[in-house]
Design a binder for these strands. Structure first.
Lengths: 206, 206
DNA sequence: GTCTATAACACGATAGAC
DNA sequence: GTCTATCGTGTTATAGAC
């Protein structure tokens, strides 16, 4: 039988991931991590050099996971618009916030190049992927030629990250959904038809 | 002579405002506040019941100030588009983040209805103001009738709040500016003209 | 009104037994 | 590899002098 128990190091990383998401780096103490993981002080300092080292392992895993999940949606089927819509509408635990984005509000994370690196890398990778999709959409005529892929990608990502802020402020996911809806209405080719059958250079649809 | 020194209570509130912006609620200790304000423990507990009470005074002031500054720009001169552009482009210390929005990532702030209330009220007021401006723009024909004021307002605010996240992740304001630029290109009536002089119902410009 | 002293506990890390 | 004990410091608050 391969009934495998999870290693202590593994439980420490997972507990840290949960707490970083809930309380951030500054708000997460080694004591709280150890309690959640069911381990003693010694275990943590055996496997990791300290709190920053353990947090780094946790942040890297969370960042890699989010990146893979986002790219899976963005590389999925559909037109460029549909793939961006799928990304914007993908299932999210909105009130919990973004496990990666929230770290940018942590002074100790931003102050450390090592802790910030995975956060930056993940957001940047998603941004690049979206920018490529926008350029693809321009070539196919689904998006107007005046759109800048890099800029639109930043807008898309910012709308998501800012949506979390609005939702958490109001205690309801409604504002997140509204922001996404607004952005999609601005992006949607079909939503701005021309009159008298003339072609609109922006949408390139009749 | 009216050479007035600032009261101790005043210095405590201002020091707290600075620290809340820099380090958030969880990352700000009474000791750090007292050091910055040049006061002793007794002063703080004389004027306030404790850390949450002092933080509430600081948050209320910061929220009210931001709200006034934002509404001043939004109620300024110009067309609806121009006023939204002015809001999006208004001077910001991007890498410091939003002094109000960052509080939504603080678990203790979100957990307290009292601390969260001023944050929610300010973001909501700005959102409502932008929504009204969008509706105004629709009536004037500057924005297409398919746009929903509430949704667009959420998108505008989210782009700003999320722009801070992207900027802090990368350590550069560039991503914030890119997000704003992308959103403006989607909103701008002039950026999507029709061919052959036909009228586009979306932009209502030739 | 402001100060210092003190309390009780948490933080982050180390030491050394098992 | 994991445990408990301990360390020095910081946190949040109270007490009481001035």
């Amino acid at each position: 039988m391969y009934s495998r128990e999870v290693s202590t190091a593994e439980r420490l990383i997972e507990s840290t991931r949960e707490l970083l998401w809930e309380r951030g780096y500054v708000g997460t103490s080694p004591k709280a991590i150890l309690e959640r993981a069911g381990a003693g002080q010694g275990s943590m300092y055996h496997h990791f050099t300290g709190k920053p080292d353990l947090a780094l392992a946790a942040i890297r895993r969370t960042a890699d996971e989010l990146r893979a999940a986002a790219e899976a949606v963005l590389d999925g089927p559909g037109t460029p618009y549909e793939r961006i819509e799928a990304y914007l509408r993908r299932e999210r635990d909105v009130l919990r916030g973004c496990p990666v984005g929230r770290l940018t509000m942590d002074p100790d994370v931003v102050a450390s190049d090592e802790l910030r690196a995975p956060v930056d890398a993940t957001l940047d990778a998603i941004r690049e992927r979206i920018a490529g999709i926008v350029e693809e959409g321009k070539e196919q005529g689904q998006f107007g030629p005046e759109l800048d892929g890099e800029a639109i990608a930043a807008t898309v990502l910012a709308t998501v990250q800012g949506g979390y802020v609005l939702a958490r402020a109001s205690g309801s996911p409604a504002a997140f959904d509204a922001g996404v809806r607004g952005l999609l209405s601005l992006l949607h080719p079909q939503d701005h038809p021309t009159v008298r059958g003339a072609r609109c250079t922006r949408c390139s649809t009749n």
